[in-house]
Design a protein around this nucleic acid. Structure first.
Length: 488
RNA sequence: GGCGACGUGGCCAAGUGGUAAGGCAAGGCUCUGCAAAAGCCUGAUCACCGGUUCAAAUCCGGUCGUCGCCUCCA
């Protein structure tokens, strides 16, 4: 079964056929870098991380572009959100942008999100945006207002509203804000804004000094790096209108070509308020938890587990309990991967237990089927959980399991759990000097404890175990008298 | 008001026609010096009503409820 994607454009599952077989061009709307990212952002970008990882795992060459918005994203008040924050913190706008762009990558790196191939910034693509606006004006899809601002004329794009299912004439003029005098239609949106003197993010343009509108950056940068038509466009569902809709309108008018062929939008992260009513996690409501704060409490893999335990398109409620549950589920998975690796350290060479290979093949087939069905990560995780039960049974039994089989089990955890989902950390990396010393010390204590146990000096053996536990080193006695350990 | 999504065991969550995956939590059990880990066992008829069908959580209609978007937000 080939990969199926729920295409928001048309609202149906479709077989995914990239423009060029084996090659996927993909664009995802990135964050506006004016503050630390919160776990709502994490949900979106971890979701697309898994999409990209799986596409690559399936043999595709993926070119992944995700922008950073550092200009033009205005608040309701008409203020530029970056300028406002810069004023508040008494810093230069680009200083602020740099700070939070770094913070964003720091967070994404910590979460194991593979970096986009290209992270273009809006402010670095002003000429491309101006050029696209010129194209739109010459095609009569946009017009210049008296003050030097340029607006897109939505009536010129036949398919306007096709992504969000909106009809231009169904919207009441001025229902939410005063119809600006210079606009022809209330839905018309700014491609270029005239800059007042106090607006210090400003560039020269054919229409005077100003700055680009929010939507045009994505159109211009997607065109530059991915071409007029590309395969997948992603983002948060909250940007479906107007942002995504406007991207389509601009691009299709300017390029005379279809924009993105598949649209994938991620459901929002919700936070129940004091009375239990969920509302979207957002800066403006103040109900957010930053990624940094969350990572102070939970391992990155646990956060990913939480995010991936619901389908990407679903809205998800944020609860501490959900994180705790995710942690429990993750530990069970990782515990089995760890157990496998420990067995590898002193297993006999050979094919003993080879019958298990069939179980592994089944897991892989089920996993791929789940992911091929619109990236159904929760179902894919379930296949690993089911495998884990059997792995635990096998490795805790008296059966001898040869290295070949253990390697095969480990490969499944590495490949599916690690490489695709980013949940299972890679096997022991080459231990540095301190790591080796620590391992030696723990092994020494374990042997002392073993002696105490032989002597039935349980007070002493329990003391060693308890003290180590306090230090975050967990000991588990295995059948047969051996003891394994891991760091919590 | 318009458009869209959704309502599955205590919690989270898969499942779009053939008698409900998985995880967490809970209880019982096995193993264990103890502990931990692990394994086994125990539980839902799918918001409600009506319809289509041999057969529906799954399709259709209606009711109730929740959320998103309707130019601030991934």
């Amino acid at each position: 079964m080939a990969l199926q994607i729920f295409n928001v454009l048309g609202r149906e599952k479709q077989t995914f056929e990239p423009l060029v077989p084996g090659h996927v061009n993909m664009y995802v709307c990135g964050p506006t870098v004016y503050d630390n990212a919160h776990i709502g952002h994490a949900k979106t970008y971890v979701s697309f991380d898994v999409v990209v990882r799986y596409l690559r795992f399936s043999g595709n060459d993926v070119l992944y572009v995700q922008n950073l918005t550092d200009v033009g994203h205005l608040l309701d008040s008409g203020e530029d959100r970056i300028l406002k924050k810069a004023r508040q913190t008494q810093s230069l706008p680009m200083q602020l942008v740099e700070t939070y762009a770094r913070s964003y990558f720091e967070d994404m790196d910590a979460l194991g999100v593979v970096r986009p191939d290209i992270s273009p910034r809006a402010s670095a693509h002003i000429p491309e945006q101006i050029k696209m606006i010129e194209l739109l004006i010459s095609d009569n899809c946009a017009y210049v207002a008296d003050d030097g601002s340029v607006y897109f004329d939505v009536s010129k794009h036949e398919g306007y509203g096709k992504l969000s299912n909106r009809k231009v004439d169904s919207q009441e003029a001025g229902s939410r804000e005063e119809v600006r005098g210079e606009k022809r239609n209330p839905e018309d949106f700014a491609l270029w804004k005239h800059a007042e003197p106090e607006h210090i993010l400003r560039w020269d343009s054919p229409w005077g000094v100003g700055f680009p509108g929010w939507h045009i950056e994505c159109s211009a940068m997607a065109k530059k790096y991915l071409g007029d038509t590309f395969d997948i466009h992603g983002g948060g569902i909250d940007n479906i209108y107007p942002h995504n809709e406007n991207e389509i309108a601009q691009s299709e008018c300017a390029n005379h070509a279809e924009f993105s062929r598949y649209w994938m939008l991620v459901g929002s992260l919700m936070v129940p308020d004091s009375s239990g009513i969920p509302a979207k996690m957002s800066k403006s409501l103040g109900n957010f938890v930053t990624i940094k704060d969350s990572l102070a409490k939970y391992r990155p893999e646990v956060l990913r587990m939480f995010i991936l335990s619901a389908h990407y398109a679903s809205p998800v409620n944020y609860h501490e309990d959900s994180l705790t549950a995710a942690a429990g589920g993750w530990e069970r998975l990782y515990g089995a991967a760890r157990l496998t690796r420990q067995h590898m350290n002193n297993a006999p060479e050979g094919d003993e237990g080879n019958a298990f290979q069939e179980r592994l093949n089944q897991t892989k087939a089920d996993f791929v089927a789940a992911m091929d069905d619109d990236f159904n990560a929760p179902k894919a995780i379930a296949t690993l959980q089911e495998l884990t039960r059997d792995v635990n049974t096998l490795l805790n039994s008296d059966t001898t399991v040869g290295l070949n089989t253990l390697n095969a089990i480990n490969a499944i955890y590495d490949e599916l759990g690690g490489k695709v989902l980013g949940l299972i950390p890679a096997g022991d990396t080459a231990a540095n000097g301190n790591g080796q010393r620590e391992a030696g010390l723990v092994e020494l204590l374990i042997s002392l404890r073993a002696q105490a146990r032989v002597n039935k000096n349980y007070a002493e053996s329990d003391r060693i175990r308890n003290e180590l536990t306090k230090l975050g080193v967990v000991l588990e006695d295995r059948p047969g008298g051996s003891t394994v350990w891991h760091v919590e």
